[in-house]
């Protein structure tokens, strides 16, 4: 009995630590007072101020479109890379391929951002929206690969072999048999690449240009000036948006697990 009490107390403490600061931030975005320690009553005025903040809105548009595009490239590349890792067995150069594929997972963001910038400079590409999308597609690809690779490992290769025995070309077998089976994970990979791109500040700062300031960059320049209710409001919106995507992604992968159990 006491072990259970201790366990539940630990859980409560852990979740309070993880979610407390976020909850306070959310509450403060509805605080009419500017001071974090004074509750001035419930108000949505910081949200209405946001709607009229042209620069914030423009940054949000850039971030959302960069996230949508880069996640598309990352998911496509991640799918191909995961396919190579899961189905090609031991091929020449596999260690190099896998090793460099997962490098961004452990590389400091400042190093990766600087390296990408140097590539763009060497190629003489002007920095802006395009380089932002490419950079985000590069760093989110490994996360997409990890997710899709996990799904492919769970997916029975004999199904593909059966399709091949029945006369399907490898491409047809993949599109008609494997892809539908791993589709939920592919969609999840897209959604996670999307949220990672939407959140990124460091890599974007290195690789974007004057015309394409992202939402995190805009937020950052305001945050450096201190806590402000407007930032609380935009943060709350962003947190809510990401929570929505996460829920969708979690529901999708749960559906996969269930489907896998039934089939």
């Amino acid at each position: 009995m006491s072990a259970r009490v201790l366990r539940n107390a630990t859980l409560a403490l852990g979740f309070a630590f993880l979610y407390g600061p976020i909850a306070i931030l959310t509450a403060m975005s509805f605080n009419a007072s500017r001071l974090v320690t004074v509750w001035g009553g419930f108000s949505t005025k910081w949200y209405s101020a946001l709607v009229h903040d042209e620069r914030m809105l423009q940054a949000a548009t850039i971030s959302l479109s960069a996230a949508a595009l880069s996640a598309l490239i990352a998911t496509f590349n991640g799918l191909l890379a995961a396919l190579a890792l899961a189905r090609f067995g031991a091929f020449r150069g596999r260690s190099l391929f896998a090793g460099s594929l997962y490098a961004p997972l452990v590389l400091p963001e400042v190093v990766f951002g600087l390296g990408l910038l140097l590539v763009f400079v060497a190629l003489d590409v002007e920095r802006g929206f395009v380089t932002l999308v490419l950079a985000h597609a590069a760093f989110t690809m490994c996360f997409a690969t990890v997710m899709i690779h996990a799904a492919l490992k769970d997916c029975d290769p004999t199904l593909e072999e059966a399709a091949a025995d029945l006369g399907a070309t490898p491409l047809r077998a993949f599109i008609l048999v494997t892809l539908p089976l791993i589709a939920p994970s592919v969609v999840s990979a897209y959604l996670l690449a999307f949220t990672l791109s939407l959140d990124d500040f460091v890599i974007a700062s290195f690789t974007t240009g004057p015309g394409a300031t992202t939402l995190p960059m805009r937020i950052y320049s305001q945050v450096r000036l201190g806590v402000s209710p407007e930032v609380n409001a935009i943060s709350t919106l962003l947190l809510g948006f990401v929570a929505l995507i996460l829920t969708a992604s979690a529901l999708l992968t749960r559906g996969r697990a269930k489907g896998g159990g039934a089939g």
């Binding site: 306070i24 959140d199 945050v223 947190l239």
Partner: peptide
């Protein structure tokens, strides 16, 4: 417990300033 990892890093750090 792991979900916060996927939400904005920047905002989670920012939340501590007010604390």
């Amino acid at each position: 417990a792991v979900a916060p990892f996927w939400t904005s890093f920047l905002i989670r750090v920012y939340a501590w300033i007010a604390l």
